[in-house]
């Protein structure tokens, strides 16, 4: 992990908040912009920090390119929405991996690790950071051997074929189970596409607009009795709305 992703102190947050407030009037509404690990402070009342820090925090440039090539096919651009890549899913995954989720910091990680029965669920000794690092390298190796190209160098349909084979377990990856790796990436991609945009994915609330989910609203008392009616509510994010910004 790089130095910049080590996390933040309360002091840093205060400083950053003040800085973003100073520019806040001119910019569109954004919560505090903080360099470092994305997330919230456990047991703190504040919402999560909003990260629009440019660059990658966990992925190398090469890994990021491959992840973007994957999420672009898992959620393809069509007349319903932009692609997973353009929705920010790779950014979301990068920020998640750089934070406490990336090391399963809250989870029980004592050994011995043994595979167990399917009912005993995930017993992998690998944490998400390792799952991506190993899985992406292995996928690259596989694609080089098969196609003499990285995954991102493949045509769309070829990429879909590789992803389908991963999903079915028809491919063997070095160091990680192919299906396990696929499900990890698919799960995080869907999180990124549907989570609040504050985490870097679901840009412009694209998925919420697509399905009609109004987002971070908190009061439907005026709507509960409107049965079987399309409500067309404009979605809201925790970030807030530029419409709330005081102009001028």
């Amino acid at each position: 992990m790089t130095d910049k992703s080590k996390g933040f102190t309360r002091r840093q947050i205060l400083v950053s908040s003040a800085a973003s407030l100073a520019v806040g009037a001119a910019a569109s509404a954004k919560a505090a912009t903080v360099a470092g690990t994305p997330g919230w402070i456990p047991f703190d009342h504040n919402g999560p920090m909003h990260y629009d820090t440019p660059g990658w925090q966990f992925f190398t440039a090469e890994e990021a390119r491959e992840v973007e090539a994957i999420v672009e096919r898992l959620i393809p651009a069509d007349d319903l929405s932009v692609s997973g890549k353009d929705a920010g899913c790779a950014v979301f995954i990068d920020r998640q991996l750089a934070g406490e989720y990336g090391t399963f910091a809250r989870l029980y990680r004592e050994g011995p690790f043994t595979p167990g029965t399917p009912a005993q669920a995930d017993q992998s000794p690998l944490v998400p950071q390792e799952r991506y690092r190993i899985g992406l390298a292995a996928l690259g190796k596989y694609c080089q051997a098969q196609f003499q190209k990285p995954f991102s160098g493949l045509e769309g349909e070829q990429r879909d074929k590789v992803l389908t084979d991963l999903e079915k377990g028809a491919i063997t990856l070095e160091g990680i189970d192919a299906q396990f790796f696929f499900q990890q990436v698919l799960g995080n991609t869907m999180e990124g596409f549907f989570a609040d945009p504050i985490y870097g994915g679901n840009r412009d609330m694209v998925s919420w607009k697509m399905i009609g989910f109004p987002g971070a609203r908190y009061d439907y008392r005026d709507y509960i009795a409107l049965h079987n009616q399309k409500l067309d509510l404009v979605p809201l994010s925790i970030i807030g709305s530029s419409a709330w910004n005081k102009k001028g």
Partner: peptide, 20 residues
Amino acid sequence: ASATDELRYNRRQELMLRTK
């Protein structure tokens, strides 16, 4: 302003006992 966060509360289980 921050309770409506599916990733934090539903997926990452902010209110649950940490298995660690």
